[in-house]
Design a protein around this nucleic acid. Sequence first.
DNA 1: TGTGACAAATAAGTCTGACTTTTTGTGCCT
DNA 2: AGGCACAAAAAGTCAGACTTATTTGTCACA
Lengths: 233, 233
Amino acid sequence: MSTPGRGLHGRVLDTLGPAITAGEYPPGSVLRTDELAQHFEVSRSVMREAVRVLESMHLVESRRRVGVIVRAKAEWNVYDPQVIRWRLAGADRPHQLRSLTVLRSAIEPVAARLATRNATAEQCAELTECALGMVANSRGHRLEQYLVHDMAFHRVILTASGNEMFARLGDVVAEVLAGRTHHEVMFEDPAPAAVTLHVQLAEAVREGDADRAERLTRAITVGALEELDVLAP
Amino acid sequence: MSTPGRGLHGRVLDTLGPAITAGEYPPGSVLRTDELAQHFEVSRSVMREAVRVLESMHLVESRRRVGVIVRAKAEWNVYDPQVIRWRLAGADRPHQLRSLTVLRSAIEPVAARLATRNATAEQCAELTECALGMVANSRGHRLEQYLVHDMAFHRVILTASGNEMFARLGDVVAEVLAGRTHHEVMFEDPAPAAVTLHVQLAEAVREGDADRAERLTRAITVGALEELDVLAP
DNA sequence: TGTGACAAATAAGTCTGACTTTTTGTGCCT
DNA sequence: AGGCACAAAAAGTCAGACTTATTTGTCACA
């Protein structure tokens, strides 16, 4: 996923970013650029670039004569895909996963409703294709293939909504879905009911039935939330 | 609002960021760091820091032997508050405002529902206070004071939801509300119906009536959408 | 004519050292 | 106690030299 190690400063971020988002430095902690540069064995210019990136994510704040101050969690740019990845890779992964699933439950029903108005013929076809792919891989422990189609399905819905803010959540939703398959307990085949819902949703979008599309999507996301409650009570 | 001019690289971003988000450089355009540094009359190190920030926002991509490539709009981190501000300040402000209002219409009803479960006593009190403030300033062209309470109201709802992803949209919603008052045509006092809805919503949250809270919030956001349709058909 | 390897050109990337600027704390003086 | 001047500290800025990856063009060879 993404692009690890695009330059020295990226290498630094790969360890400093997760450390900060994991809460290893309590808010208000002060880091000094020179010390960090020494610690990571990079030049000050490289370290400064890394700090600038952290600053643009609102993870830290750089102040003259003081140093680099770690900001409180409430100020972080939690929609930054990089921040999301770091947090999903860290200790509060379950908490983060829940937050994102709740976000999905708010966004996706509305996106589906909009998709019934804005989806192109190609997008409708793609949707049906994805749904069929899910059906085809819903039995016999073909979880990996199922996941591919599931991620594609939701991405198409979000894109077809025609709202750029929704569309950009495609990566996030994909990450959540992938997380469920890869990290959580997921030995069994997906629930048949969920598969059916996706097929019906593709139908509803194709037919332009906004209410039905919204209702079906709500059912899907409620299912995802309940699944979370079972796994992490 | 935010922090303009936090260093030289910030000054550079203040003009380069808006230029890129305004679409002045078509996707695929190649910028050269050295030329930019000359143009802005800063050293290369400062220019590099600015580029790193743009890169972390996925506005550009830096490639060796090639230069700094402007990414397609679809790749931008459109949830980055800085990007949102730049775009709201630019030419496609109406389009951006609509995207954000649709986002509100998806998020806020769910946030309000959650708030009925998670809001603290203080937050309920604050909510009522804001609603009263809105009532008190709803007549006689006290738009500025009305706005302050309106922004605070929605911020409390989002925070009280207990979901950090929702909470972080407080700034965005505030920006949208402020935009409506300051930039759009807004000579008249707010619609009495809207004011009433806020008062009732504060009530519903206090009483823990989830369905009513969600329904009322939906009414508020639908109102905001209709208002947009009237102003920019 | 096409293809492969090799060389040159290019722009980003990195490092270092010197210098500037802002902020904070301290301690002296009233 | 209050305020003012001075000194220290750390980020910020700059310039220049050097490194490295990548692209592109060329030339020989099949």
